[in-house]
Design a protein around this nucleic acid. Sequence first.
DNA 1: GGCCGAGTAGACAGATCGGTCTACCTCGCC
DNA 2: GGCGAGGTAGACCGATCTGTCTACTCGGCC
Lengths: 219, 219
Amino acid sequence: MARETVATETAPEELTPGARKILDAASALFYERGITAVGVDLIAKEAGTTKKTLYDRFGGKDALITAYLRERDLRWRSWLTSWVDGHAADARPGEQLLATFDALAEWTRQHNPRGCGFVNAAAELPDPAHPGRRVIDGQKRWLRGYLFELSTAAGADDPGRLADELALLHEGAVVLRGLAVVADPVGSARALAEQAVERALSRPRAAGPPIADTRPDDR
Amino acid sequence: MARETVATETAPEELTPGARKILDAASALFYERGITAVGVDLIAKEAGTTKKTLYDRFGGKDALITAYLRERDLRWRSWLTSWVDGHAADARPGEQLLATFDALAEWTRQHNPRGCGFVNAAAELPDPAHPGRRVIDGQKRWLRGYLFELSTAAGADDPGRLADELALLHEGAVVLRGLAVVADPVGSARALAEQAVERALSRPRAAGPPIADTRPDDR
DNA sequence: GGCCGAGTAGACAGATCGGTCTACCTCGCC
DNA sequence: GGCGAGGTAGACCGATCTGTCTACTCGGCC
């Protein structure tokens, strides 16, 4: 029983060819049609494999859902960090914070026509005990933490507040991308972010003990 | 066939007692557990009625989903407008725009522990032809239009841009409410909104022809 | 009294759900 | 040559899905 769940524990590169095809098919179907609405039969058929392989490699649908979320999370993290590192490495303070919105713009263009995959998944996983929920929480916490780091490095007067605000703008932009009601949500978010960053940097943090982060609950 | 769909076309007050119980039960279950995951048998059982009544009154699950979204939409609209009218009727310009976030704060406290019901529903209704999608689009467009009206009344220099920004902040706040990663998302959104409103009102609109709205696609 | 809208009770249908199973094939490695 | 991991093919299970149906009850209205 412990061996079968190996696919959800190790790096995605170590997946068996069959498991790789299944995870690819499941990722596309889960995002495009919803998690509950997609059955394991369809996934196996779309992947060109059989349910046997699916259950041998992943153990069950819940584990497959979790693997889908985990891989999407990893992809987003490396996308964002490599973009920020590459496009604003030695720019003026605050530029890296705004670069996250440029990364988001390109990400949504390529991978997010239907809104945030994690928000959508959370809507379908109401049970807080579901393993996928931990991945979703981790993704949101990671982004907020990353923004907190960049805010601190930029010298924001209250990096915790700025991180909260920028995380909010990220979420709002991604969600509105999926609902065609605002012309350029990422652009609007970036404009608001510029204001927020400007304000946070206009009153530079006083020298002294570093300001503690004010995250809601770190358990 | 035309008669059966009466419940989805008329005001919710005109619902039959049985239909009322079914819609109430369905609304709670759809929001708390997700739309696809909830079956009609459970809805009928939870409502203390039978499937027969459900199909006689609503015609089918899709129509029931649409009725759920429609009623939730109406409730939110009247909640927001009455709050804004009551709490900031004769205040200084821009105050009404910020009052929408106070209304949102109380709304999420009472009705939105699991994020935006419309965003969650959109995640489960990928088919653009589903009648529920029109309700979701209508809700988002209405909010954006309402914010545009308030922005214009407040004398914003670019009410279209301000409406886009405030709509974005609303969405971000509601979504983040459902994911406990930011301490007070509505508060953060309100803080950002204050900045945006202040900026939009600091350069009052020049006299002359009214600025045309720049909505993405009004069909 | 007669009628009809509304509701209850519950069987029923066909499809699909997640999940298990047997049987067989193929490939690389010892 | 033998062995085991990975895969294919497909039957099978019980449960649940949406949706339909018959039969009966109740209450208000003409």
